[in-house]
Design a binder for these strands. Structure first.
Length: 597
RNA sequence: GCGCCGGUAGCUCAGUGGAUAGAGCAUCAGUCUUCGGAACUGAGGGCCGGGGGUUCGAAUCCCUCCCGGCGCACCA
């Protein structure tokens, strides 16, 4: 029992461990008191601080099975409970709730263990999983827009969280670098700049997006051109060297623009586009054929899976090979499923795309399962996010010209952050160097955009608004950065070196606002564990926002530098632990902290 | 028509079958001799889309209807 006070790795420095221990103790008590084994005991945070820290409702759940009034059941359980080592005496309230209050000594011990831990109490995964995170996925010769921001930011955050949890993560950029549009682009390149096909240095297509639009216009209005574009696709897919050369030119050109965005957003990702799977497509078809899963329908090779219907109510096929003999993205996605499992040895594959592709991936996964390519021990998940909508509630149209370019959005964010900063410095009469201001505006602007995107539940649709996305007050990145800066300000003002506080078991909780902050600090591992299950980084945003609120409450109510010892040192450590938690949490969202604002 | 998402405060959104449904923004009223005011405190504002059901208990689960978005055969 006493081991609970001793810091031994990750066994006790976390909320997960506390809850797990409580569940076990309750199960034992229920078994002793009422002879019921293996009850699933839900230990929940108290709905109101007046009820303590945690509540257990198992007595209400057992009423029918045991055949006694809930309060009597609760009394029986409490009489058998052994919680003296970390809880005050449990109380029974209302119809039969058992309310728990953690002992301050337990909170202190757990906090000090967390403070001494570079991982802040978050245990690395017992079984590291080889994990593929497929995100971002821009299209060659098209501009990245706000939809790509969602995939990029959400995917990056998921990858960061999995990496921190100790998993072996492969970040893949499934770039749209293959398909029918390349016939059009290559044909247009031949027409307008033939010299570039033999000498890449003569290439001049200005902005690639304009090039794409001119090619598309020609494609739509010139039948002869259209026919040549079709032939280019065939040549490209069959590996014609000149076509491949032209294709590579276009990809290289696009990559420059993508790289710039990734650098701005601090995204690390390995490009493995659709073209990568091209050589693997025939084998996909052959294997499906060998299993007798292919059906010819209107000249196309299809797989039919139960549960998928078209608008006439007829079975909806997954088209593996088109009537003209070409493959499509379903084939590519099946090849990707196989490759990631067989060659990358992934046990977990996370694909982050817009919600409009949910049916497609459900069908692809179903076919993969049917073909025996997707074993039960591999977790294959589509992580969808809501559509970006215009003010009218309709989907943003890529071709309509109304799309906000991602690069413009990021620029605008930095400009706004700078304007806000200048205004504030002016009102405070502060003088700062241009370097400081420019650097800060960059960081705050990008942080604001990322946070705005990550903080809403990814499933929700998303009405695009510069004002909302670039807001700097309320539940925004600057709010959390400010809480972090306040801690650093304390250190500067008091000339305190936080590193000197390490390993001294300094933290002793006294005030209610300290207690409230402390409990929240211990919940980090529980939050991350849940995100690892449901892939909702917005949970981490909520956690960090609440942490900042609780810290500000503490800051308002508890003087730090002016407090007497040992309270002063205890509060310094608590503030530092808050800052470290904010820093870690924000880093998992891809946001870096600053020491001054 | 079928399928998938969604409907919670004026707006944007949280909410794990539990006690009195919460934040932010906006509005109004306060807090500056105290560690940095991008802060803090308080107020108003809700038939949780409607109706049934399951349950000791439902915003949460089931059924049904209404509204919105998206998808539904060779684009990705």
């Amino acid at each position: 029992m006493s081991t609970i006070f001793i810091s031994i790795g990750y066994n006790n420095a976390s909320m997960i461990a506390t809850l797990s221990l409580l569940r076990t103790r309750f199960q034992e008590a229920v078994a002793r008191a009422h002879g019921v084994d293996g009850v699933d005991v839900q230990v929940l945070p108290a709905s109101n601080p007046q009820f303590g820290d945690l509540q257990v409702n198992v007595a209400l759940q057992l009423a029918k099975a045991v055949g006694k009034p809930p309060r009597a059941i609760a009394e029986g359980i409490v009489a058998e409970l052994q919680l003296d080592d970390f809880c005050e005496t449990p109380t029974i309230a209302g119809p039969g709730f058992i309310n728990l209050k953690l002992k301050t000594s337990y909170l202190d011990a757990t906090l000090n263990a967390t403070y001494a831990d570079t991982r802040l109490g978050v245990a690395p995964a017992a079984q590291p999983l080889r994990t593929v995170v497929d995100f971002s996925g821009p299209n060659i010769a098209k501009e990245m827009h706000v939809g790509h921001l969602r995939s990029t930011i959400i995917g990056d955050s998921i990858a960061r969280i999995y990496e921190f949890l100790g998993h072996d993560v492969l970040r893949l950029n499934h770039v749209g670098d293959w398909g029918t549009q390349f016939g059009m682009l290559i044909a247009f390149l031949r027409d307008t700049q033939p010299s570039a096909l033999t000498d890449a240095s003569t290439l001049d297509i200005g902005d690639l997006v304009g090039f794409y639009k001119r090619a598309k216009l020609r494609f739509d209005t010139d039948d002869e051109f259209k026919e040549r574009a079709r032939r280019e696709v065939v040549k490209l897919q069959s590996g014609d060297p000149e076509s491949l050369f032209a294709w590579k030119l276009l990809c290289d050109q696009s990559r420059v623009a993508f790289e710039k965005i990734y650098q701005t957003l601090d995204i690390k990702i390995t490009e493995r586009g659709e073209s990568f799977y091209n050589p693997l497509l025939p084998a996909v078809v052959e294997d499906l054929e060998a299993q007798g899963l292919l059906t010819e329908s209107d000249g196309a090779l299809c797989v039919f899976v139960d549960g998928f219907m078209n608008k006439e109510g007829n079975p909806l096929p997954l088209i593996i090979r088109k009537t003209d003999g070409a493959y499509n993205y379903a084939t590519t996605d099946l090849a990707a499923v196989r490759y990631r499992i067989n060659e990358d040895h992934a046990k977990c594959v996370v694909i982050v795309t817009d919600i409009g592709q949910s049916d497609h991936f459900a069908q692809v996964f179903a076919v993969a399962r049917l073909a025996g390519w997707l074993p039960d021990d591999v977790r294959m998940v589509h992580v969808p996010f809501g559509l970006v909508q215009g003010e009218d509630g309709k989907k943003f149209k890529t071709r309509s010209g109304e799309t906000v370019k991602l690069s413009d959005l990021l620029d605008e964010a930095v400009v706004r952050a700078r304007a806000h900063l200048d205004e504030r410095l002016d009102s405070e009469g502060r003088e700062e160097t241009e370097e400081f201001k420019a650097d800060l505006a960059d960081k705050v602007g990008i942080a604001a955009v990322k946070y705005a995107d990550l903080s809403v539940n990814r499933g929700s649709n998303y009405v695009f608004s510069f004002d909302k996305m670039l807001a700097l007050q309320g539940n925004t990145a600057p709010y959390m950065l400010y809480a972090y800066v306040r801690v650093q300000g304390i250190a500067r003002k008091g000339d305190v070196d936080f590193a000197s506080l390490a390993g001294l078991d300094n933290i002793h909780i006294v005030e209610p606002s300290e207690r409230d902050l402390a409990k929240h600090l211990l919940e980090l591992d529980d939050v991350l564990a849940r995100i690892a299950e449901d892939f909702l980084p917005s949970r981490l945003c909520t956690y960090l926002f609440e942490l900042s609120q609780k810290f500000n409450h503490f800051y308002e109510n508890c003087p730090v530098l002016n407090a007497e010892e040992p309270t002063r040192t205890s509060r310094l450590a608590l503030a530092d632990l808050t800052a470290r938690t904010l820093q870690l949490g924000l880093s998992l969202l891809g946001i870096s902290t600053v020491d001054r604002l």
